[in-house]
Design a protein around this nucleic acid. Sequence first.
DNA 1: TTAAACTTTCAATAATTATTGAAAGTTTAT
DNA 2: ATAAACTTTCAATAATTATTGAAAGTTTAA
Lengths: 167, 167
Amino acid sequence: MNYDEAKHKFVSTWGSLGTLWGINKAMAQIQALLFISTEPLSMEDIMAGLQISRGNTSMNLRQLMDWGIVTKEIIPGERKEFFTTEKNVQELARIVAKERSRREIKPVIKVLNEVSSIEDDGNPKTKELIKQTKDLHDLTETMDALINKLVNQKQNWITKSLLKLIG
Amino acid sequence: MNYDEAKHKFVSTWGSLGTLWGINKAMAQIQALLFISTEPLSMEDIMAGLQISRGNTSMNLRQLMDWGIVTKEIIPGERKEFFTTEKNVQELARIVAKERSRREIKPVIKVLNEVSSIEDDGNPKTKELIKQTKDLHDLTETMDALINKLVNQKQNWITKSLLKLIG
DNA sequence: TTAAACTTTCAATAATTATTGAAAGTTTAT
DNA sequence: ATAAACTTTCAATAATTATTGAAAGTTTAA
């Protein structure tokens, strides 16, 4: 496998994997391209590199910036905008985890809390609904706390956590 | 909020949340319905409860069984098949985590390993590709190990893990 | 100011993914 | 063996989601 093949394989795998970390294909591919680039890329570079339209590139770059994964780079003497992504994998994982907690997990906890707080009318079906959603609420809240705990350890968090759990 | 409203809110929220744990809407909704049901449900029950077709129900039940989340129940004297889901939330979380590791994370680790193992031709671009995909490979592998570690603690794993990390 | 260089927006369109429903398949009872 | 009761399959269709491209918007240089 040569450079171009490897690059293509990485970008497309990372793209189709987007769903795993909750973003769409183009978004993930742009991030992948920036992630292995030695220098900041312009919109033209990204359009050419992935064979996607200007509009698509623009919209997905915006989303990546909203997530805090990609930043604009000003290059002196250049009129165009250039983009870079967070290159440190641990920091990248921290950002993704925090955003998913905020965007997805927190809202679910809210709904589960509402549902599990309905009045118990004595009906077995109501009791079951309350019990099960309460359990799910507690689990989700604990997992969210766990994720935030892991993620706030900054330096080498994943490896450190693993060691703690093994020991 | 009364029982029916709460039930509906739970089922539809859980459904649209399916993507978060990597399954589709109908699949997640069927699981939700079974999860709060006091007794096993037949295909008819599910079709009526979610207003979906027989084919859709059949296919998604199959997928849930493939995941190991739902099981067929034989009810004596009944010709129809009945279905139940794992009711324990911790056990449910374990199953989901294991399946996602197997289906999604492991294959990615493989690709990252292949890509990061290409020959270093001295070109800075190749060096960067190798370095970045190597880092991603190591991170993903460590996270996968962490997940499996967490998930294999059986009894009250999430709470236990949280305590370990805090202490 | 003006115009060139660039980016954003968004309605139209394409691609993907989910759902239906009816025919084919299976099981059970007689 | 037959038929009723049930489930599965899959081509057609619907719903959803992603992508395009051109017009509108913005910034910069002169």
